[in-house]
């Protein structure tokens, strides 16, 4: 069983102010999806990223927020176990970010066995 990383990317809509109920429903969608993967024993870890950030460039250039130059931001990631890309992709198809117009990037890990 290998590990894959799912990266959730989307274009944030600054005008969308969800109500408490909409927020609740959104959380439920994510949690039910994650719970589904976890109930197959395939969940490893997940993290949501906030909307703030710093961009660091060569020459001591630091700017606020990751969106100055990119429209799309990464909202979070999840690490799952899967036999191969096919299975990882199958799991990614249920991700709620797809309903928000975003997409999921599925990535394999490079094995760095010598670090163990």
């Amino acid at each position: 069983m290998k590990e894959f990383m799912l990266l959730f990317r989307s274009v944030p809509n600054p005008d969308f102010k969800p109500t408490a109920d909409q927020m609740q429903a959104e959380i439920k969608k994510w949690q039910d999806w994650i719970g589904d993967i976890a109930s197959q024993g395939k969940f490893v870890s997940t993290n949501q990223l906030t909307r703030t950030g710093r961009l660091v460039k060569a020459g001591n250039i630091v700017s606020d927020g990751p969106y100055a130059e990119v429209k799309e931001i990464m909202g979070g990631y999840m690490i799952i176990k899967a036999a191969d890309y096919d299975e990882a992709v199958e799991k990614a198809k249920g991700c709620p970010v797809l309903d928000m117009g975003g997409h999921v990037e599925v990535r394999d890990f490079m094995k760095l066995d010598h670090l163990d």
């Binding site: 994650i34 719970g35 976890a38 969940f43």
Partner: peptide, 11 residues
């Protein structure tokens, strides 16, 4: 929802 969280801590 509690089970969703529980499974993330321990399967």
């Amino acid at each position: 929802q509690l089970y969703n969280y529980l499974l993330q801590i321990e399967y």
